[in-house]
Amino acid sequence: MTAVHEELRNVPPVKLVVQNVSKTFATRHGPVHALDDISLSVREGECVCMVGPSGCGKSTLLNIIAGLETPDSGAVLADGKPISAPGRDRMVLFQESALFPWLDVMGNLMFALKLKPNLNKQARREVALYYLGLVGLGKFAHSHIHELSGGMKQRVALARAMAPNPRVLLMDEPFAALDAITREQLYDDIQRIQEERPKTIIFVTHNVREAACLGDRVLLFAPRPGRIEGEFPVPLSRPRDFGSLDVARHASEVMHALKHHLQSEGMEATE
């Protein structure tokens, strides 16, 4: 029991510092400058949302912070230590759920927990059930993945990402494929869970309103080369309602800047 308590202890969120990160990809149409000298600092427990048109490098930056890609130059520091590989302190929630269809719901959570030393089978089960309860799917421990709806899959994926008790959550357009009603429920859930188990969150999205609803700060990215074009604090109290006027006001501020930027670049705002 003590091992479980120890495992479920809230770990302090981490401070992330991105220092002069650049990344170029070679493509058939020549090199693409995905990130150009990006610097940014994220406070412990802060939720930073990154918005911007396709190809602005926001997902690349998220992958670099996850350790799934390496920058050409620059560094990412987590509490002062440079990141060089993926680690359980930084978990990722992908756009598709990335759940393993050959395992049931419980098996997916256990996959993450089995890779953690110092926990016996019973303790791992208890921890897994705790996180399933946290996302409201305690009754679905033995469901197969294909039996779940899109929203449920993302909840399980969130539980699996939370299970190793990371200090950073990296979310790459996790709700983009869901319908509007499901998405709004998930906004409430994310905020409730963040209240219970605070993490440093980086949230990549196309949806400006989603960013204003979830973020303490919204960063506007611009493409070619990928860079941060603007920064918008969202000093609203929580929990926030996706439909509230305050959220809409902040969203329109970001949207306005985005449109302005796109016009100055001679591009269409397609999102």
Partner: peptide, 27 residues
């Protein structure tokens, strides 16, 4: 198989042989 499975497994601490046996093979 979707590369996302391997990426997800890597963030959970899976590497090399473990990834092959527990992710790529069943996938």
């Amino acid at each position: 198989i979707s590369p996302i499975y391997v990426r997800a497994a890597m963030t959970m601490g899976s590497r090399r042989l473990h990834t092959w046996v527990k992710v790529i093979l069943p996938a």
